[in-house]
Amino acid sequence: MNVFRLLGDVSHLVAIIILFLKIFRSKSCAGISGKSQVLFALVFTTRYLDLFTSFISIYNTVMKVVFLVLSYATVYLIYLRFRSSYDSESDTFRVEFLLVPVAGLSFLENYDFTPIEILWTFSIYLESVAILPQLFMITKTGEAESITTHYLFFLGLYRALYLANWVWRYHTEGFFDQIAVVSGVVQTIFYCDFFYLYVTKVLKGNSKLTLP
């Protein structure tokens, strides 16, 4: 474990908690893409199948359980508890355009052609594009509440910190996971446009992000 990965995991946890609390306390999921949240729940489900078979550390197990519980709880809030506030007309990204290529690629490019490894690869590829429905929804509505932008900031920051973690691990222990690194770079690039808007608009104290 290194400081970059720890800060990355904390940033990821903060993002997930920010979103969950925003929906739970405002009793509304307006402006939130339910599709992205379903994709994230799928990412955790296909990645953490080894939850009961391989024990890494208490931290690893606890964080996996927390991520799984909070992601499914968020999907529950959006599609069941506060479904009247779910803006399905704006959440129109065709997720099949993500799932099919990601599934195909995970069969073609993986470390080992076994179910558990292909599902892990699927989760890595899927995570890199899972935010697209949410970013698409913001461009479509032309705005986002500031709390939603803070969620996106910490979510984007987490994988950027993981890139630093992989640089650190490469130089200190020769660790290199090509599939995770390439996907992580792609994932972080998708946030660059948002990061620019976040820094130039939201941090200037605007109540919410309105796209030009």
């Binding site: 995991d9 080894d50 991520f67 660790f175």
Partner: peptide, 10 residues
Amino acid sequence: DEAVPTKDEL
């Protein structure tokens, strides 16, 4: 299949 990197990350 090349060696599978350890999966100790979240």
